[in-house]
Amino acid sequence: MTTSGMTTPGATRYVALLRGVNVGGVTIKSADLAELFRSLGFANVKTVLASGNVVFDADSDPADAGATAALKARIEQALAERFGYDAWIVLETLERVHQVIDGFPFDAQREGWHPYVLFSSSAGSLTELLEAAPGLDPADESVVAGDGVLYWHCRRAVGIDSPFSKLAARTRFRSTTTNRNLRTLQKLA
Rank of each mutant, 00 (worst) to 15 (best):
K72A: 13
A80H: 15
F164G: 01
A132L: 14
L126N: 05
I89N: 03
R82Y: 11
L118H: 05
A87D: 02
D86A: 14
L126Q: 00
K166F: 04
A78M: 10
T93L: 04
R174W: 08
F106E: 01
A65N: 05
S125F: 01
A133P: 00
A169G: 13
P115A: 14
D161C: 02
L129D: 00
N181M: 02
A123S: 15
P138L: 09
V149K: 08
I101H: 06
T178W: 06
R170C: 02
G66Y: 09
E76G: 02
R156V: 13
R183Y: 11
K72M: 12
A73H: 10
A67V: 10
D86E: 14
Q99R: 14
R180S: 04
I160E: 11
G124H: 10
T68N: 10
R180K: 08
V100H: 07
T178K: 09
S162A: 13
C154R: 14
R156P: 03
S60D: 11
A78K: 10
D86G: 12
R156Y: 12
L136H: 07
S122P: 01
I101C: 01
T68D: 12
D140H: 14
R180N: 08
L150E: 03
L91C: 02
P138Y: 05
G103S: 15
S122A: 15
S175E: 14
A139F: 09
A132Q: 13
P62W: 09
P62D: 06
T184I: 04
E92Y: 07
A63T: 14
L150W: 04
D64Y: 06
A123Y: 05
F173C: 10
E92V: 08
S142L: 12
G135D: 13
A87I: 04
G146A: 00
R155D: 10
V117Y: 01
Y85V: 01
L130T: 06
I101Y: 12
R174E: 07
A69C: 03
D64T: 02
A168Y: 04
D147C: 02
S142P: 01
G159V: 01
L126H: 02
